[in-house]
Amino acid sequence: MRLREWRDDDAPAVLRAFQSPDLRHQAPWPVVTLQDAVGWIAAWPGAGHAFAVTIGELVVGNVAVAGIDAHGNGWVSYWVVPAYRGRGIAAAATDELARWAFGERGLHRLELGHRTDNPASCRVATKAGFRPEGIERAKLCYDGVRYDVERHARLATDR
């Protein structure tokens, strides 16, 4: 597993990934065409730092840090395509992203959140060194249903 910058020719992999029902909410707009996928890749440089998660040459996921503020804080997100879940890829990629963000970007605090009904995402966060900090009640709304979110954080000083 390695991280690399997204490339325009990764658009077909992005489009395939966002066909998974549980990943559709991971994009700020619906990714239903190849042009949408190219736009998703092109939007990252202004929004934050995103990396393709690869196994060999195959793109299997994404890790990103965005929302970087003047206090050295950033918001982490991750996803892995269904066929590659359960192998520790998301946790390893998220840990590597955190090390990069602390070392290369000089950030101090990274935060992430996951729905409380998503224990797999919670395992990714904790395996990547993100400690739970609390529940944000009814934070997300998908298809008219409200969901609680558990927030996690990792500091550059955490061991």
Results as ranks from 00 to 15, higher is better:
G103M: 07
W44V: 10
Y147F: 15
D10W: 11
V53F: 04
L58I: 12
A153C: 14
Q35G: 13
P132D: 09
P119A: 10
R151H: 02
E111L: 09
L140M: 13
R16Q: 09
L155N: 07
S77I: 04
E104V: 14
G61Q: 05
G67A: 13
G39M: 02
K127F: 00
V65S: 03
A93D: 00
A153P: 02
G86P: 09
V60R: 05
V80K: 08
I135Y: 00
A43W: 10
C141N: 14
W100Q: 09
D22E: 14
A90V: 11
G48T: 12
C141W: 07
E150C: 15
L15Y: 08
A125W: 01
D36G: 09
D158L: 11
W6Y: 11
A138R: 15
R154E: 01
I135H: 00
Q35C: 05
P12Q: 08
A37C: 14
A156F: 07
W79D: 00
A42F: 04
R99Q: 13
R105L: 15
D8R: 15
D36E: 06
G67K: 10
P12L: 05
G56S: 12
S20T: 13
Y142C: 06
A17W: 05
V38H: 12
V59L: 13
D158T: 08
R115I: 00
V14A: 04
R159K: 08
G134T: 08
A47D: 10
R16W: 00
D9M: 03
